[in-house]
Design a binder for these strands. Structure first.
Lengths: 206, 206
DNA sequence: GAAATAAAGTGAATAATCCTCACATTTGTG
DNA sequence: CACAAATGTGAGGATTATTCACTTTATTTC
């Protein structure tokens, strides 16, 4: 079970790794074109230029492909989060960082429609919902670590809960924003940034 | 297309209405037992004690059944929302109402696990995600109407965006809370109530 | 560098499951 | 009661995910 997207053979040779990439690329394109439900395994195989059997060599089932793609998006978001949170100096600094995180988060999906399509599909199965929650939890931990030295007197339990919750709410806000038209989405993200800022101020207070 | 869950024959005779109820009940039970993905149409038919053809008499496809169930849950939530928002007198009153709404919202899923299972499944298909957004929008309108007389000077666009966003975030917060263990869920809902309260205060301010 | 082992590749065949449709039965109506 | 409308039925067609027995290619061993 070393393959986190499910358990099948792990590609070790370069040839196999390329093949897996081809499969993922083909799946991504098809999801963007027709939505994840309408994607057929044979289509993925055909577009990737591999026989159907090869798909099942590396992915236990169709959902695993989507899971893998979702995990890659999550990784990118997490990397950006880490980078944005690195070396926070003060409370004021933290507020600016969080603002930047949200703008970047939203921007990622706006500028890469393909990424958005994958992300939207990420709710489409129970395993993915669990993955999403685990992801928020992990991001929450990172967020918590970055902030806790700024609020040494704030009880940890609350700060942890707030971090976890904010990560999940941020995802929800962004998902909503990219699902509506651009103008409204912008307004929603702006409003959410105010909410987040206020929550942080509240954690910093006293 | 009078049937909002899709378009098929609308049951008019009592016999047919009962049948539809039996189908929905059976589907609900199976979703609770195995998750919506694993539910087979033949199983639903068998448990409901009707032939497979009858399912398709009233539901165009499998997703329509889930859609119908989700809509019923949404209706219940909406009714509770309306009731809780009826005749708000003051800003302080509004804060109390919103608190009650969240507690009731969370409580609904805690006390009725079956309802929770349906609700969790509500993300499992694109049409349902759209339904969820439309639902938040409608709830946002109701929320907006209930509050706008309290903040006549606040620009409508922002209040509308905030209402819409809060309804969606509330759903996300509750979904998260019921997905984790009880203790943590309680803490998350509590934190979210603070967030919501602060957002309202901010709208009332100035 | 030949033999042995492991990894990767293959696609026709199988299995799972949704959904249809032509016909039977029941209910409502003049 | 005769006729129309609504409802009920389930074997089977259609689609599509997945398997698996076998071949080919790469890597390791001696």
């Amino acid at each position: 079970m070393t393959n986190p997207a499910g358990s099948r053979r792990q590609p070790t040779q370069a040839r196999a790794r390329e093949r897996v990439e081809r499969i993922l690329t083909a799946a991504t394109e098809l999801i963007a074109e027709t939505g994840s439900d309408a994607v057929r395994m044979t289509e993925v195989a055909e577009r990737a230029g591999v026989p159907i059997g090869s798909l099942y060599q590396y992915f236990p089932d169709k959902a695993a492909i989507l899971r893998m793609l979702a995990m890659r998006v999550m990784e990118r978001v997490r990397d950006a989060l880490k980078q944005n949170l690195d070396g926070i100096g003060s409370a004021a600094d933290a507020l600016a960082r969080v603002d930047a995180i949200m703008i970047g988060y939203y921007g990622l999906f706006l500028t890469e429609p393909v990424t958005r399509d994958i992300w939207s599909a990420t709710q489409s199965d129970k395993a993915l919902q669990e993955l999403d929650i685990a992801d928020s939890r992990e991001n929450g931990r990172i967020f918590f670590s970055a902030l806790k030295h700024l609020v040494p007197r704030r009880e940890h339990a609350r700060l942890q809960a707030a971090s976890f919750l904010l990560m999940q709410l941020s995802g929800a806000a962004v998902r909503l924003a990219i699902a509506v038209d651009r103008e409204e989405g912008d307004r929603l993200v702006e409003e959410y940034r105010l909410i987040m800022r206020r929550e942080l101020e509240s954690l910093f207070d006293k």
